[in-house]
Design a protein around this nucleic acid. Structure first.
Lengths: 115, 115
DNA sequence: CCTTAGTATTGACGATTGTCGATATCATGG
DNA sequence: CCATGATATCGACAATCGTCAATACTAAGG
């Protein structure tokens, strides 16, 4: 991807930035909901656990114990991450496998970029 | 709020990343509180309004009207941004002037960086 | 079928958040 | 001093959030 050439265009069309004033109310609401998904330590650790896997994915069954939270609580946070577009999930038999969506993280990261 | 002393001081103190697994609980809590400060549309618009000033700073009196919120509400959000280290404030006579702290935004941005 | 096991949902609870009106604090200019 | 105006704090309220126990759902193996 020739990113340098189209970088500005993408930034303008695809993802509003905090530093590109003035931020419209709808853009602000959209960005804020993304950051809200990151505003919890359990969810951040979930992301880091999933992203840290060699295979790029991990079974939900391996995410309960290291977080020291109940299974419903972990399931709840995984759902929030999924609905925020930060992780993707795939059911295989009894198990559900999660992987991060780097593009979504990148979009939020660009929201904090200095113009 | 003294953090427990850690061997890899630089790596831990400077900027933990979501994608640098595993994210310790204290690091996750620290990062999450930063993102929580960004998880509100009013605060994002405040940041964009302050950052968008030519002079790099703006009087608080100019921030109430464009946000369509009461003065106490805006003051409340400015306080949260200040306590999160995202803005700096300076009192000059009756007025208070705000400017963004780019380093803080940058630190949070790096928290979302791929490895 | 029935049991087992992984995952999701429900219902409840205390804690936190965003909001505003009322009020306090503070600096300035008569 | 006092009056004015900018900013911060307080008190209250509804709404949302994080959490867990209980339970429902679902796929696999006897």
């Amino acid at each position: 991807m020739a990113k340098t050439k189209v970088a500005r265009l993408d930034a303008v069309e695809c993802c509003p930035s905090v530093l590109s004033a003035p931020l419209a109310e709808s853009e602000a609401t959209e960005l804020a909901s993304g950051f809200a998904a990151l505003a919890d330590p359990v969810r951040l650790r979930l992301l880091s656990l999933i992203a840290g896997q060699e295979a790029g994915e991990v079974c939900a069954c391996e995410l309960v114990e290291p977080l020291d939270r109940s299974q419903p609580t972990v399931s709840h946070h995984l759902k929030m991450l999924f609905e925020a577009g930060l992780v993707q999930r795939e059911k295989r038999g009894t198990w559900v496998w999660y992987r991060v969506v780097p593009e979504r993280l990148e979009a939020l990261r660009r929201g904090l970029e200095a113009s």
